[in-house]
Amino acid sequence: MRNVTDGIPLTALVAKESVKTGWNGAGGGFGLSSAGIAPMLGFAAGSAYSRTERARDLAAPQIKTGVDFGIIPQLVMTSVAAGFIMYLPDMMLRYRSIDPGDRALRAITTLMHWGGAACIAGAFIWIVVVLMNQTRETGENDSTVAHALTKQIYNRLRYVEREHIIFDPTTGQEGPASKEGLTNLLKQES
């Protein structure tokens, strides 16, 4: 069995090989416009997060929620369509010379307003039903407990660079320092 102090904690390795950098700057100058010479000023800022390949492979596993966020584009499209449907009658009245007292036009505008509201209500109900079903199917409480146990095991793992392995000092289990090796080691112990 390996010595408990062999290597370094896996979490320390991942932290050491992960870098978050930020940058910012300003610039200025003069430009020619129809009003004459005009001063210009601009600012820019940003940040970047980078990891080595080894840090990416040996990073802590993330909890998988039961929610599929692939529905967000559908929600946006439904909201835009509902807004367009609700705004269309007003746009027709504004940009056309149509008599607002026309009964057919009033019926169409009323239907469009209620149709847009129905789209929004239907989307909301669909979202609630889908999200509730997905959470129920995955068993959120079970996954939270399993993730806590996996995180606890991950936090005690150590990395030995000279042999390129990871091991658990508590159980003596060890494996190659790779994504597959980490996954296998966490599955064996949980």
Rank of each mutant, 00 (worst) to 15 (best):
G46C: 06
F43S: 03
V67E: 13
L13Q: 05
K16N: 11
T52Y: 01
K64M: 03
A55F: 07
F43T: 03
S50I: 09
K16F: 04
E17G: 05
V67R: 14
G27N: 10
I37W: 03
G25M: 05
R51Y: 00
G70S: 15
P39A: 09
V19Q: 13
N24Q: 14
G42E: 14
W23H: 10
L58E: 02
Y49C: 03
Q62D: 08
T65C: 05
G36S: 08
Y49H: 13
R54N: 04
I37R: 10
Y49Q: 12
A15Q: 15
D68F: 00
A55N: 09
G70V: 06
L41E: 10
V19T: 13
T11C: 04
N24R: 11
F43M: 09
S50V: 11
K16V: 00
F43K: 02
F43H: 04
N24M: 13
T65D: 12
I71C: 06
F30Y: 10
A35V: 10
A38K: 13
E53Y: 02
D57A: 15
P39H: 00
R56H: 04
D68W: 00
L58N: 02
A15G: 09
G27I: 05
R51N: 02
K16S: 12
T21W: 07
G46M: 05
S47R: 10
G28F: 06
G22L: 04
P73T: 09
A55R: 08
A60H: 03
G36I: 05
L41C: 03
S18V: 04
E53V: 08
L13N: 06
V19M: 10
G28K: 03
N24P: 00
S18D: 05
A48V: 08
A12C: 01
S18F: 04
V67N: 10
V19E: 14
M40A: 15
I37E: 07
Q62H: 05
P9N: 06
Q74F: 14
A59G: 07
P9K: 08
A38F: 08
V14R: 06
G25D: 05
T11H: 09
P39L: 01
P61W: 02
V14A: 08
A59C: 01
S47W: 12
L13S: 07
T65R: 12
F69Y: 14
S34H: 12
G66F: 03
G29C: 04
S47Y: 13
A38I: 15
G42P: 01
M40G: 12
W23C: 01
I71P: 00
G46D: 05
P9A: 07
L10W: 01
I63C: 00
A15D: 15
A35R: 12
I37A: 09
N24H: 12
I8K: 11
D68I: 00
I72Y: 15
N24W: 14
A55E: 07
S33F: 01
R56A: 11
G46Q: 06
A60Y: 01
S18C: 06
E53C: 00
G31T: 12
S34T: 13
A55S: 14
L10G: 03
A44T: 08
